[in-house]
Nucleic acid binder design. Structure first.
Lengths: 223, 223
DNA sequence: CGTTGTCAAGAGCAGTGCTCTCGAAAGTGT
DNA sequence: ACACTTTCGAGAGCACTGCTCTTGACAACG
């Protein structure tokens, strides 16, 4: 049956689902993923905890929804930054996207921890999150595609990468190791800053971050 | 009062403390930090939960103790690997230490998540963990000290690093940015592998990891 | 030998995730 | 328009958590 006009029930359902997600988003930002309580979310939207289970079968499923949201949000931030720097050269676009990811992470530390910190409930989010997870990489790959391969990495290293990666990014497969390394470097640096590892190590985080971004740009052959 | 011979009470206290830590270590490895339950730890050592509070004032303090243990353990693994490769050249020693850290992380994923994942209980572990956190960096810095500075990084970047870092590592301050970047790369790569970000991205993790280790070695000027 | 400090145990509080049942709606078919 | 089915919210309840407080027993010290 084709649903052209959603019934009142369906509209109420998506509305309630959205209300739950909104409350969960707020609570995530306030107390973090570990302390996110389904009962508190229920209280916030004005219903009893058991009613929430009509919309999310478990607390982990709620968290998974938030994880996908977060991947989309950071991907969107990266894409927006890239669009804004559309006219400029590849290196400036590259650094702009890096800065946007860092800024998003600092503005949304709980969401960032959710997706790039330790998996919260054991190993909750499996396949559902994979498409959303690659968006930042896609933006960076879109810049790197114009670059030529700097050195020629070992064939064994090239073979160690999943071929889908170079294909999805539209880059030379020989660029894949450097691209993955740069991607790791971006989130490694942002994570280390956010999780306090740079305490008493890096004083001026902006300057250091820009330096790393530049190094990474060179490593993928961006002039 | 100088305690030369510990009294029976004192011996009993350290023994009980060690028993609690041992049980906590086991439970951490089994269920992870988020699900580590003080009551379950108490059950395992055969006492009631309230008694544990005589030894650790809160669950977070117990976790902090485990965090310090984990930092020490990974540092010890790095030092042991370095000692084992004592005779060899700097590059081989460098790669050996990197491999040891990765091996330790794969063998103790819960501990690794505890120290390099998102901070678990809000922002629990502050200053206590700082000394233990630097041990791996010290080992790597000890290798890099024999290297000469490859390029000459921007003065602003050099100034962005805490001067204590280069001093503690005994390296040229101009090497500090590259050293911090390499350190970030090590734990960023290990973390990404452990937390599942390389799923469907990197097929042969050993080969890729060795490649990253080699790149990092070159970046700090190791021939 | 008595005093003092330490310790384990138990009860209890407020909170959690999750399940089950029940009554009231809303939607559907005749 | 009426009966039937599905959906939904509420409430009670279970087993669990971190943590506090009180009570009674034991060891150490003067």
């Amino acid at each position: 049956m084709l649903v052209l006009v959603p019934t009142a029930r369906e509209r109420a359902r998506v509305q309630t689902t959205e209300a739950i997600l909104a409350a969960a988003r707020i609570q995530l930002a306030e107390v973090g993923a570990a302390a996110l309580s389904l009962r508190a979310v229920a209280r916030e939207v004005g219903m009893v905890s058991s009613a929430v289970y009509r919309y999310f079968p478990s607390r982990d499923e709620l968290l998974t929804a938030l994880i996908i949201e977060a991947y989309d949000a950071v991907g969107e931030a990266a894409e927006a930054a890239h669009d804004e720097a559309a006219g400029r050269g590849p290196r400036e676009r590259w650094v702009t996207v890096w800065r946007a990811v860092r800024a998003w992470a600092r503005a949304h530390p709980a969401q960032y921890s959710l997706i790039y910190g330790s998996p919260v409930p054991g190993y909750a989010a499996p396949q559902d999150t994979l498409p959303a997870a690659g968006r930042v990489g896609l933006v960076l790959g879109g810049i790197a595609v114009e670059a030529h391969v700097a050195g020629s990495p070992d064939d064994a290293v090239v073979a160690a990468m999943a071929p889908d990666v170079a294909a999805a990014l539209g880059i030379d497969p020989r660029l894949a190791p450097a691209a993955v390394t740069a991607w790791t470097m971006l989130f490694g640096t942002v994570g280390f800053e956010l999780f306090g590892q740079y305490e008493n190590v890096v004083l001026d985080r902006e300057t250091y971050f820009d330096h790393v971004a530049g190094t990474a740009a060179s490593s993928v052959g961006i002039p």
